[in-house]
Simulated assay, not measured.
Amino acid sequence: MLGALALLDDVDITAVVTVADDGGSSGRLRREVPGIVPPGDLRMALAALAAPDDRGELWARTFQHRFTGEGALTGHPVGNLLLVGLTQVLGDPVAALDAAGALLGARGRVLPMSTVPLEIVADVAGVDADPRDVRRIRGQVAVASTPGRVRSVAVEPADAEVCPAAADAIAAADLVILGPGSWFTSVLPHLLLPGLRLALEKTGAHRLVVLNLAPQPGETEGFSPEQHLDVLSAHAPTFRIDTVLADTDAVALPGRLSAAAGDRGARLDLAGIAVPGAPRHDPPALARALRRVLDRL
């Protein structure tokens, strides 16, 4: 999504990123540096927005480079360590992200949804022998990888403050985009933090939901496109959607999805936005679809 937006030369991009990652390098850093905002997803967003010149590409590759070997640094991306170091030096994760963005020549701003680390908590059915039993699963990695069907998801601490800069960016936006991404652990969390949900509900921006190309094992396995909208509405019933964007080939029953979007007051846009033969979005094609949405505004 950020790669697609960066292809549009007349947009001012702000990426608001979840801070509940507890796996890999981010998980290790959360355990070793208490209170630190997990940097992994923030790093990925910064790298996606790096300037398309030699300097930006060098820094993006460096940010994404993982240390090899057998020591304590093994597996850590350079960017994760740099973001943690900048946060400690500057005393503010937002200032750290802005400084890192300047280093990469980022074509936009990257912000955390909250300046405190969060934890994903989900109620999952089908984990035990009796499919009616529901077990509470904690942690983003555990939720994404536990067999069964996610019934509901929440973030803790439930009263965590929204990042003020993120709320301000949403209030000033012309277009707000949710998705694509892991539905329960990356997309829905934006609507589970009270301050962020309020900002998304009050903004005068056009609200666009971009659906995934396929169900995700461990989170939305067996879900139809319209079930993704059902889950979103169940978790945030007062959040209004204006447009739903989906890949033409990923929607088996477009009439049903159009009706589901219409029930929420939204229109459905179908376009070829996937890389042919591959399960990922194509940035240039996605950029063209986004341009059509922007032109309607």
Rank of each mutant, 00 (worst) to 15 (best):
R267M: 11
V141E: 14
R135N: 00
G126Y: 09
V251L: 09
A246F: 10
L196K: 05
R135S: 14
V84H: 04
H65P: 01
T115E: 14
A144M: 11
L7D: 11
A6T: 09
P189G: 09
A20C: 08
A166M: 12
P217L: 09
V84Y: 01
D174E: 14
L97D: 02
A246P: 03
I36C: 15
A4K: 08
C163P: 02
L188E: 03
L270M: 06
V209G: 02
V231A: 15
D174L: 04
A99H: 13
C163V: 12
R132I: 00
G35N: 07
L208N: 02
W183Y: 07
A172T: 09
D9K: 12
A171C: 00
L111H: 08
R43T: 02
A45T: 02
A154T: 15
R109H: 12
V16T: 08
H206F: 07
A169M: 10
D230N: 10
V153S: 08
T74F: 06
A96H: 03
F67E: 05
G222I: 07
P147M: 11
P157A: 11
R197W: 09
V127G: 09
L208S: 03
V134Q: 03
A261R: 07
V176K: 05
L73P: 03
I241E: 08
W59V: 14
E161Y: 00
R28L: 14
R107N: 13
V293Y: 00
L208F: 05
A48V: 01
E70D: 15
I177T: 13
Q64N: 15
T14D: 03
G71S: 06
E161Q: 14
H281I: 06
R197F: 11
E156I: 04
G204E: 12
L229M: 10
G265R: 06
H281W: 04
V37W: 02
T87G: 11
P180R: 01
T18F: 02
L178V: 06
E119C: 12
A100Q: 09
I13R: 09
K202T: 15
A48T: 02
A236M: 10
E221L: 14
V155E: 03
A129D: 15
V134L: 05
V121Y: 06
P77R: 10
R291T: 14
R207P: 01
P39Y: 06
A160K: 07
V231S: 12
D22S: 01
P34W: 01
L5S: 09
P180F: 04
D10L: 08
E32Q: 13
A271Q: 02
L104T: 08
G265W: 10
G27Q: 08
L2W: 07
A72H: 12
D53N: 14
M113V: 13
A165L: 14
P34E: 00
A172K: 13
R109E: 12
H65I: 00
G272Y: 11
